[in-house]
């Protein structure tokens, strides 16, 4: 019971806030809930396949293969793969975190994981298409060209802030998935 509360405490808190808003102003609560409904649908569309793919990746793809393509010494190939995988993905940023965890378990280099998260957050192809149509080709392409070096620079600066021990700790936690 105590574990259950601990695990779902964030969820429980948001539900309580939502209930209070309903009590104060029913219409505002209804509006909030309809937005939740929309995001919920978005989540149901992407989260189940992401987790099934992750499970398959974990069991079927050998660690050696992942290390070869995206691990230490994978060089520019690993960086490019991280950007492509992140950009081609569907779903909001929270979908990237479990994937990052499995990548760690599989021995993917930490900097490549950071680039993957960056690509997922900024250079996603579905988003790029929306940007093309609403803001024009020049705007979208210029932003993309600034974003790509941007996420690589962010990844390497971030790398300097995190110590070797902290990274090892993260990888060890990922082992227990």
């Amino acid at each position: 019971m105590k574990n259950l509360i601990k695990r779902y405490k964030f969820f429980i808190v948001t539900v309580i806030i939502m209930s209070i808003i309903f009590l104060i102003d029913f219409n505002v609560g209804k509006k909030a809930l309809s937005i939740v409904g929309y995001s919920f649908k978005e989540m149901l569309l992407v989260i189940p396949p992401i987790f099934v793919l992750l499970g398959l990746l974990d069991v079927w793809v050998p660690r050696e293969t992942m290390i070869k393509y995206m691990g230490e010494g994978s060089g520019i190939k690993g960086v490019a793969l991280a950007i492509i995988l992140g950009s081609a993905a569907a779903g909001p940023l929270y979908g990237a975190f479990p994937i990052a965890a499995v990548f760690m378990k599989k021995g993917v280099k930490f900097s490549n994981i950071l680039i993957f998260i960056g690509a997922w957050s900024t250079t996603k192809i579905p988003m790029f298409l929306f940007e093309l149509s609403s803001l024009g080709t020049k705007f979208a392409i210029t932003r993309l060209l600034i974003d790509i070096p941007g996420i690589i620079i962010i990844a390497y600066i971030l790398l300097r802030f995190v110590t070797k021990e902290e990274i090892n700790e993260l990888y060890k936690n990922a082992e227990n998935l």
């Binding site: 695990r7 779902y8 964030f10 969820f11 808190v13 948001t14 539900v15 806030i17 939502m18 808003i21 909030a32 809930l33 309809s34 937005i35 939740v36 995001s39 919920f40 989540m43 989260i47 189940p48 987790f51 992750l54 499970g55 929270y94 975190f97 479990p98 965890a101 998935l177």
Partner: peptide, 19 residues
């Protein structure tokens, strides 16, 4: 197992987005 670990946080996030 992974989904069970994260679903509480994810649904919480959705509620927060709505708010």
């Amino acid at each position: 197992g992974m989904m069970k670990n994260m679903i509480g946080e994810i649904v919480g996030i959705l509620f927060l987005i709505g708010l």
